[in-house]
């Protein structure tokens, strides 16, 4: 892989995906599930970086870490969705703006 292709194209694709996921987490503060989807997007970008670097540097560790990141993504999604279900049962909403119970009631009224 030529150096230009590696830097300019093959690493640029997951970089843009990662920043899209990170920006989506902050821009779309509506729903907890959409924030989890954005985290999935960021983990996919990390996976792509690992695999591309593994191919470009001819090192097997990148593929190993990609497999591990996949496992971590699965566990994170499972637990995050379990928390979504739990929070929906308690409060009957998934709106992120309404998850402010730890702020205290006075600031709640003020805002």
């Amino acid at each position: 892989m030529s150096v230009f292709f590696f830097k300019g194209v093959a690493l640029f694709t997951p970089l843009v995906l990662f920043v899209m996921g990170a920006m989506g987490t902050f821009l779309n503060r509506r729903n907890l599930i959409i924030m989890l989807l954005c985290i999935e997007l960021m983990l996919l970008a990390a996976n792509l970086v690992f695999l591309t670097a593994s191919v470009a540097l001819d090192d097997i560790n990148g593929q190993l870490l990609a497999l591990w990141v996949m496992t971590a993504a699965a566990a994170e999604t499972a637990l995050g969705l379990a928390l979504c279900v739990l929070h929906y049962r308690l409060r009957a909403t998934l709106d992120v703006e309404l998850i402010n119970l730890m702020k205290g009631s006075q600031q709640n009224h003020a805002s």
């Binding site: 496992t71 699965a74 499972a78």
Partner: peptide
């Protein structure tokens, strides 16, 4: 909820096979 739990179990053993 049972559907979700079965999906969790499938996901975990899917990754186990991948390992």
């Amino acid at each position: 909820v049972g559907f979700y739990l079965v999906a969790i179990l499938f996901l975990v053993f899917d990754l186990e096979v991948a390992f």
